[in-house]
């Protein structure tokens, strides 16, 4: 059973969030855009799941659909289930969802400036979470807010709690966002490109902090990113997405050392790496196709170096190729 499989370290992993056959589309002027088409994704207790893909591959839409924060209309969740604590999140009422969001499942975004309210102090915004989800009094909630800021290692938290978002640097704002997201000790944190807008030295600080907090709180993390280095540094398992589909899934060692899908292969070879200086970059030819104008058969067939006749006819099935390692490709063996 894929539900309970042993990973390398021998720990038994139990699923905490199971997304099955999720399809989401956007109804725009130029037509219906199938942003997510039949995505399966499992997050296990206590792990960091990296979701990797380029812009428009559906990685953010998948996460936002689970939290039901995509704007509908124009968006619509066409099919699928998202099981969390024996409930299907996609069928909960809006009031029930409010009890989940920010409480049991939290999300942080790429640009903390736009997700913080500029009119309130950082402390008030964290205190608000306690008042809403925990029913605390104003004073008590604010004191807890200062504690939370100390926890994310913001220097002089009592003073910083009285600052407005624009008075903080980018790194400090992302820390404050994390403090808000983790205030209620959620079971799942969804981090959508949390370090993309930050400099490398600050990125290292934030990743370090996220790793620490994950062990402290014992939560699971879904880390959405396009940066393969970031994934390699903190993820346990990885899901690779392309054109609204999961094309490969496996442990980080599966994905980096013995990946099976040509897209994963291309992605890894196209990244400039400090550990392999001056190696020629292998590009993936062509451009990402428009989602409403995908090639027939496999969505990657028009850019794939290993394309075969059947790839242009039928979409490959997402089949297991090892323990917990799955790939959406017709190839039997890796040609590289």
């Amino acid at each position: 059973m894929p539900d309970n499989f042993e990973n390398i370290s021998g720990k038994i992993r139990t699923p905490i969030l199971e997304v099955r056959d999720l399809s989401v589309s956007f109804h725009l002027l130029e037509g219906v855009i199938p942003a997510v088409a039949g995505v399966d994704m499992v997050l296990n207790q206590g792990e960091v799941l990296g979701v990797v893909g380029e812009s428009g591959c559906g990685k953010s839409v998948t996460a936002k659909s689970v939290l039901r924060i995509i704007p509908c209309p124009p968006g619509s969740i066409d099919s699928g289930t998202a099981m969390f604590e024996d409930r299907n999140l996609l069928e909960l009422t809006e009031a029930e969802m409010e009890g989940v969001r920010g409480n049991k499942i939290s999300m942080i975004f790429q640009e903390p400036m736009t997700s913080l309210n500029p009119a309130f102090t950082v402390g008030d915004q964290i205190a608000e979470v306690f008042r809403f989800h925990r029913g605390m009094k104003k004073r008590e909630a604010f004191e807890r807010a200062v504690e939370e800021l100390r926890r994310v290692e913001i220097p002089d938290p009592a003073k910083r709690a009285r600052s407005y978002p624009h008075q903080l640097s980018g790194g400090m704002r992302q820390r404050a966002m994390i403090a808000i997201a983790l205030a209620c000790r959620p079971r799942i944190l969804i981090a959508d490109e949390p370090t993309t807008a930050l400099d490398v030295t600050i990125q290292a600080q934030i990743l370090n902090l996220m790793g620490q907090l994950q062990t402290d709180i014992g939560m699971s993390i879904i880390l959405i990113t396009h940066n393969l280095g970031v994934v390699a540094s903190i993820a346990d398992r990885v899901v690779i997405m392309y054109a609204g589909r999961v094309v490969e899934e496996g442990t980080i060692d599966d994905i980096f050392a013995c990946h099976h899908h040509p897209y994963t292969h291309g992605l890894l070879r196209s990244v400039p790496r400090l550990d392999r200086p001056s190696e020629d970059l292998q590009e993936i030819k062509g451009i990402v196709p428009k989602l409403n104008d995908l090639p027939r058969g496999c969505a990657f067939s028009n850019r794939c170096d290993y394309v075969m006749e059947q790839c242009r006819q039928r979409e490959p099935v997402f089949k297991p190729i090892g323990s917990g390692h799955k790939s959406r490709c017709w190839l039997e063996n890796r040609p590289w």
């Binding site: 220097p155 640097s169 790194g171 400090m172 400099d199 490398v200 030295t201 600050i202 990125q203 290292a204 600080q205 990743l207 370090n208 940066n227 393969l228 280095g229 970031v230 994934v231 390699a232 540094s233 980080i252 060692d253 980096f256 050392a257 890894l268 990244v271 790496r273 400090l274 550990d275």
Partner: peptide
Amino acid sequence: SAVPIPDPVLERQRKVQLLTGDV
């Protein structure tokens, strides 16, 4: 030292020299 390397094996050995504070 802050640049993450897309290779989990090397990542487990990489020592990040964390800088304190912001620019």
